[in-house]
Structure formats: C-alpha cells, structure tokens
Write a protein that binds this DNA or RNA. Structure first.
Length: 262
DNA sequence: ATGGTGGCCCGGCCA
C-alpha cells in the first residue's frame, strides 16, 4: 500500500501537476487538501481515467478535502459528525483497501491572539473526540493531511524565527500529542530521526531555495500499520516547477509505503 | 523595506 498526502493549494490550478505526479508515482491512495472546489466541480473523470475512484468534500473557494484511490473507496464520510465541521469542509474519510483513511486540513490559526487560533485548538480537540467515539485504535487507521503544526523543533528550519508564532506553540503541539495519544504514530521520525526535512515552504522570498521550510504535512498511523511501514518520504521535487512547466503548490507530497495488501 | 508570492476571482482576503 502506497499512501500519499498533498495540500494542493487549489486543485483547479494544480490538476495537471497532480495527474502528472500520480502517473509517475502510482500511489494506491492520495489524500488532498485545499482543493478549493465545490463538490460538483471536482474533476472525478480525470482521476477515473487514471484508474482512481474519488470522494470529495468541499463547498467552493476555501478548504475542501478529497481522497482518490485505486484500491476501492467505501463508506465515505464528510466532516466530524457535526454541523460546524461539515460546513468547514476540513475532513473526509473513506475505507480504501481495508484501511480507514482520513484526509484532514487543520485550521491555520493565523496568530496566537486570534480567534482562529482558539478555533484551531478546539477543532483538534474535536478530532480527538471523534476518534474516541467512532474509531478503534487496534484497527488499521491512517489520518493524513495538513496539520498546520510542526511536531518538533527539528521540523522547522529555524525555531528561533518562529518564537511566538503559530505552528510551533506548546498548546498546538499538546493538541497534536492528544491525537497521537489516541493510538496514532507520526511515522516520519522512524525514517528521519534527525529531522530537517520539510513539506511546506512559503512562496515568498525564495524560501524553498533557501531551505526555509517546515514539516506540517503528516501521516499518522495506528500501530498495526506503523509497524508495517517500510518508508516515509517527502517528495521535494513536487515543490518545483515540473518539466512540463506546471507550477507547484506551496506544500509538497508525503508518501508512506506500507506492507499491507489491499 | 510593514514588503514578498500565489490562489481565489477582480478588490481584498487568505495562506
């Protein structure tokens, strides 16, 4: 099972690059965030042409999450079973090849004194409560997406530059730890214990070329999957303009290879 | 230097 996650920053703008990447890397499942599409505008046919079935949850110009799969897609579920989350279009779940997969787009938070930051923390608490109520940590579950949290200082190019900022604050890291405490593992450190590998770089100021990035796109697995995970790679090349000239998202793709027969 | 870049969709918001 090859499982990938990518914040595409508009699927309309990114579709050629996403399709090109899918053909080259052939994941079984790709989770996407920030499609910025309404459901009826989701390009399901373009994915179907490559052998992928899809599920999308979006209502227009903000947010929007999707899962595409070539190992089946059952019991799609939008939101965290509450009106507020359904409106935000930040979660979609589906069973693909026997794994319950969630594609999540955690709120950004903007700044520590913002009401959006309080919303981010509350949203993360609801995600934990959802897992408690609706999922079994002894079963195969993968929660993938843009968490807008760098789990450790080694996940940030310069921790000093982020003092007092979102993405690295203790309350956010505690909220993520609560989610992991349910029974999920961020499998990245198994393969890259020293960190220094990032999934997002600001578009501004040449951040990508300077190495000014953060690892905020995560693959979280329950133990039955984490123990079978054979690699976790971040495809830095997908953050570059493609040979065909397609422009990149500000995030790149995270890929997990798991010994799991769909 | 209160900028910078990119996407939404066309003036300002959001990341």
């Amino acid at each position: 099972m090859r499982l990938a996650t990518w914040n595409v920053n508009s699927l309309t703008a990114r579709l050629p690059l996403v399709l090109e990447w899918l053909e080259a890397h052939a994941p079984d499942v790709l989770c996407m965030q920030e499609t910025k599409l309404a459901d009826d505008a989701f390009p399901a046919a373009a994915f179907r042409a490559l052998g992928y079935v899809s599920a999308h949850h979006g209502d227009g110009r903000w947010n929007g999450v999707a899962i595409v799969s070539k190992v089946g897609l059952q019991a799609p579920e939008c939101g965290l079973a509450s009106e507020e989350d359904a409106h935000g279009c930040r979660v979609i779940g589906a069973t693909c090849g026997g794994i319950r997969v969630y594609s999540v787009y955690v709120p950004n938070g903007r700044s520590l004194d913002s009401e959006h930051y309080a919303y981010k923390l509350a949203w993360l608490a609801r995600l934990r409560a959802y897992l408690d109520e609706r999922c079994d940590p002894s079963s195969p579950v993968a929660v993938c997406g843009d968490f807008n949290i760098a789990p450790a200082d080694t996940d940030v190019w310069d921790p000093a530059a982020f003092e007092g900022m979102t993405h690295v604050s203790e309350p956010e890291r505690r909220a993520l730890a609560e989610i992991l405490g349910w029974g999920l593992e961020d499998v990245f450190p198994r393969f890259h214990p020293d960190g220094g590998v990032y999934s997002w770089w600001d578009y501004r100021g040449g951040s990508f070329h300077k190495g000014y990035g953060m690892r905020i796109d995560l693959v979280l697995l329950t133990q039955v999957l984490a123990s079978r995970c054979r690699s976790l790679e971040i495809d830095r090349d997908a953050r570059k303009k493609s040979p065909a000239g397609h422009k990149p998202s500000d995030h790149t793709v995270v890929i997990a290879d798991i010994d799991w027969e769909a």
